[in-house]
Design a protein around this nucleic acid. Structure first.
Lengths: 139, 139
DNA sequence: TTGTTATTTGTAATAATTACAAATTTGAAA
DNA sequence: TTTCAAATTTGTAATTATTACAAATAACAA
């Protein structure tokens, strides 16, 4: 049993061929892929693969806590199989999402009644690649 | 000249009737409205109002820095005319977005090449209303 | 008043996602 | 092994939010 399949079992998810491949793809590609990217990557391996399956599968993963759903651009869902707490850097130029260490956050007092589950930290700016391309352009 | 109109001028935005009303609505409704909510609220006042106008207008506002665009649910854009730095609390039950004070964030060192523009802090959990409803239900 | 530009509007297109039912696969029990 | 029920996958159609685009309207300066 490979790591992807074992992980799914640990999350209480029955591992079908499709589920293991999708989860395995996320484990190997830490670029926060979209449904389309996963589909394009796997449709040769599973020629009958349907996008609906990917949507269903990722919704199940998210429900079971196996993946995080990230929607920074407000259009497309990105998926992250690395569920340890971390921050994200979103490039405002190319849209790429990079994992960064989670900073120390000193919470302000919060109104009674709020039940806090998690605090997400998202950095926005220009990534090194876009930055260097941009500098070359200026020179 | 009312506050909404004055603000727009300060942001370098030419204040049309539609623009002033849309911005005024955002100033008065600090609930992070969506395009649909703005449309429903203003279409009696401006019977010819078009959603396209609202989209155009809000895109212009965002470009000029007059509003923030928030897309926590990955589906619908929410707009915030309060542009001072603050954190958000998103209720995982009802979806409501609440403004909260910005916490102190001690940034980790970041790779050379990253240009950081801003760091967004988003709390997720259950809001006081949903929390109390839920408790009543349990009792 | 006229002509030019900016703004608004309505319609049609696009993109991502979801609903749903049929088809297929799986796994347990006989 | 066969059978049956449940789970899973699939394809199509519908939905939702958003954008593209061109025509209509409004604003504004000469």
């Amino acid at each position: 049993m490979n790591k992807a399949t074992q992980d799914l079992v640990n999350y209480g998810i029955r591992p079908s061929v499709q589920r293991s491949l999708i989860y395995g793809y996320l484990l190997e590609h830490r670029t926060h892929p979209t449904v389309d990217e996963i589909y394009e990557a796997l449709c040769t391996e599973i020629p009958t693969l349907s996008k609906t399956t990917i949507y269903n599968t990722l919704a199940l993963f998210a429900e079971k806590g196996a993946v995080l759903v990230l929607t920074f651009d407000g259009k497309t869902q990105h998926f992250d199989a690395y569920t340890n707490r971390h921050a994200h850097f979103v490039c405002q130029c190319c849209g790429k999402i990079t994992d960064l260490p989670y900073p120390n956050v000193e919470l302000e007092e919060m109104d009674e009644g709020f039940v806090l589950h998690q605090t997400e930290v998202t950095h926005k700016g220009i990534c090194p690649e876009c930055n260097s391309l941009n500098n070359q352009h200026i020179l």
